[in-house]
Design a binder for these strands. Structure first.
Length: 576
RNA sequence: CGGGAUGUAGCUCAGCCUGGUAGAGCGCUACGUUCGGGACGUAGAGGCCGCAAGUUCGAAUCUUGUCAUCCCGACCA
């Protein structure tokens, strides 16, 4: 491809709205342009990279035994009502009605495609003999992001590969899941991006097992707890800590507990300022309502150290509740006799009281007094309040012991590029996708679902691979693999050699961008570094008089001078 | 949805406080000189100063409203 025949609007200056490196570079290198918040146009170079990533995904999906199909972006809102996800997605689900004849058609734009595909399976699968089956598609998805950000990393419209597996039982599900997991590893390896497979909560979609594939990156939106020694990796919501229940020891030199007036002081920060203590010397008591609206509804008080964050998933599992939410203000008043901000474990009644492992080692501690505008000091667990045992109830932190015993864990940021999880029968139950088993019984199909954000592969690659001059593309997803720069486009020998390199490389399957603009060398070199194609051939009059052209990788500091006849072979070697 | 900031040429920004007919650099066009890491000169093109209402003889500038974009937080199958 000649530069003059495509559109590569590179930018010398950084657009003011771009903050993260991938966003700035994608704009500067002419890969994308913003249309509105959360929606981007992919220009020729950016789109080529997306297509290359998508093709790798497609190949590996097919190699793993999945068949591609394609859904419309729109589907009837009823489908989403039947599964209960119109409600669950809320404003995230883009949906609208439009007139058709004398009636209204109400559609949703797919944020993912569990509903349409389950409906399809309901219609097409009748027997266990047709299972297992894995289908996938690469499609534009729509989600009304409340806050789009980080350029192309978080948008309201994005390209996603989603695959769904259907099986008769858990064994078939597990086999499909493992095959997808392995395919994902191959995909990210082929794309040349670093990744981490981390244990994850399966979230509102349900299911009982889930992994996220993350690109470690400073600007990632998610936190990953990781131990290199043991290989343990989990996202923050999920990460266990290797802590165990400590012995509760009451120090014998602590004076009796005392009440202090703390008018209007309702946050840990304010308590510390008012009483001159550190957050880790305080305890916070959080009130939750478990299983709201059921017979099992109850109030739960959770005590964690002042500087720690409670983890709702862990609390929910500790008490075996199906749902858990922060208690409302009325409940807090009823239980503690005080407004929000003054709860404490001392004398708290009528609630299930839970404490995190670290909470009982704060001796003495500062806690809320369960009365307005007051706190207690010199509080000791085992003396002034007590629990039978303690649990792991808080978010993991850097330095926490690894549950696999590997040693202190680190917390790193990551960009989620892929997610695999076992759905079970949530959607097949809701939408009636059943098969007839060998035993003559009808059962719901057991499903798994597996997503990859294609745009995120591209943005994530740039986020993790660039320098101060521009992008450094991994070979597999670079828009072109070789950048050919004729320095003097009016010189016939230079130009015909450039064209020859282009044609020979293309014939050999190496795609090339030939910079045929009438620009000064400095401009061409700077743009070449910005765009960051893996290899570059420079052809100049000066070199030709010495009988050489220059070949270099984007990552090389200096070019190598070689005979023109050897250039094509050299480039192919460098790309191999 | 809460908090903060910003909208002036294709891009980065000045001008606004103190109202008087719109500026710079980069980019773009033409010509000349240059020509191996973002050249120089000369001459040009390019602006409902986000939008609306108001105050005023007069608004980029003051007031009110509104829209958009970015950042932090909440949210995020």
């Amino acid at each position: 491809m000649r530069w003059s025949q495509t559109l590569v609007p590179t930018l010398k200056e950084v657009p003011a709205d771009a903050e993260v490196p991938s966003h700035r570079l994608m704009l500067r290198a002419g890969l994308v342009r913003q249309v509105m918040a959360g929606a981007y146009t992919y220009l020729p170079l950016g789109w080529r990279a997306v297509r290359k990533a998508a093709e790798i995904v497609r190949e590996e999906m097919e190699a793993a035994g999945a068949a591609e199909l394609h859904f419309p972006a729109m589907s009837p809102i009823e489908l989403w009502e039947r599964s209960g996800r119109r409600e669950a997605f809320g404003n995230v689900l883009l949906n609208f009605a439009f007139p058709r004849g004398d009636r209204k058609v109400h559609v949703a734009l797919g944020p993912t495609h569990e509903e349409p595909i389950t409906d399809l399976i309901k219609q097409s699968i009748a027997s266990y003999k047709q299972l297992p089956l894995t289908l996938f598609q690469i499609q534009t998805k729509f989600r009304n992001e409340e806050r789009p950000r980080f350029g192309v990393l978080r948008t309201s419209e994005f390209l996603m590969k989603d695959a769904y597996s259907f099986g008769t039982d858990i064994e078939q599900l597990n086999a499909s899941y493992d095959a997808m997991y392995a395919a994902y590893c191959r995909i990210f390896e082929r794309c040349g991006i670093p990744y981490l497979a981390v244990e994850a909560e399966s979230g509102p979609i349900g299911g009982d097992a889930s992994h996220e594939f993350m690109i470690p990156a400073e600007n990632g939106e998610d936190s990953v707890v990781h131990c290199e020694a043991s290989g343990y990796a989990a996202n923050l919501e999920r990460a266990e800590t290797g802590r165990t229940a400590p012995q509760i020891v009451v120090p014998d030199d602590v004076p009796p507990m005392d009440a202090v007036a703390t008018p209007g002081v309702s946050t840990i920060e304010a308590v510390c300022a008012a009483l001159g203590v550190q957050p880790e010397q305080t305890l916070k008591t959080l009130l939750y309502t478990a299983d709201a609206g059921t017979d099992e509804e109850r109030t739960v008080a959770v005590v964690v150290r002042g500087d720690h964050d409670a983890n709702e998933g862990k609390i929910r599992r500790a008490i075996g509740a199906a749902t858990l939410s922060m208690a409302d203000e009325a409940t807090v008043r009823r239980v503690t006799g005080a407004p929000v901000g003054f709860a404490g474990p001392v004398g708290l009644e009528g609630v299930t009281l839970l404490a995190d492992h670290d909470a009982v080692t704060v001796q003495p501690s500062v806690v809320g007094a369960n009365s307005a505008d007051a706190h207690r000091t010199n509080v000791c667990c085992g003396r002034d309040w007590t629990v039978e045992t303690t649990h792991d109830l808080r978010d993991a932190r850097a330095g926490d012991p690894d549950p696999k015993g590997g040693g202190p864990m680190k917390v790193v940021r990551g960009i989620e590029v892929g997610h695999v999880f076992k759905l079970g029968t949530k959607y097949s139950d809701a939408l009636g996708a059943e098969y007839l088993g060998e035993d003559q019984k009808r059962r719901s199909v057991v499903m798994g679902c597996y997503g990859i954000g294609i745009n995120r592969i591209v943005a994530g690659a740039i986020e993790t691979s660039h320098d101060d001059r521009g992008i450094i593309w991994p070979k597999a997803i670079a828009p072109y693999q070789c950048h050919i720069i004729p320095l003097d486009i009016k010189d016939e020998e230079v130009m015909s050699l450039a064209q020859r390199f282009h044609d020979e490389l293309e014939a050999a399957g190496v795609d090339c961008l030939l910079d045929d603009r009438k620009e000064r060398p400095g401009v061409k070199f700077a743009d070449a570094d910005l765009i960051g194609l893996p290899t570059r051939i420079t052809i100049g009059k000066r070199g030709l008089t010495e009988g050489v052209v220059e070949v270099k990788r984007r990552t090389d500091a200096d070019p190598e001078k070689i005979a023109p006849d050897a250039a094509v072979a050299r480039v192919r070697e460098l790309l191999a």
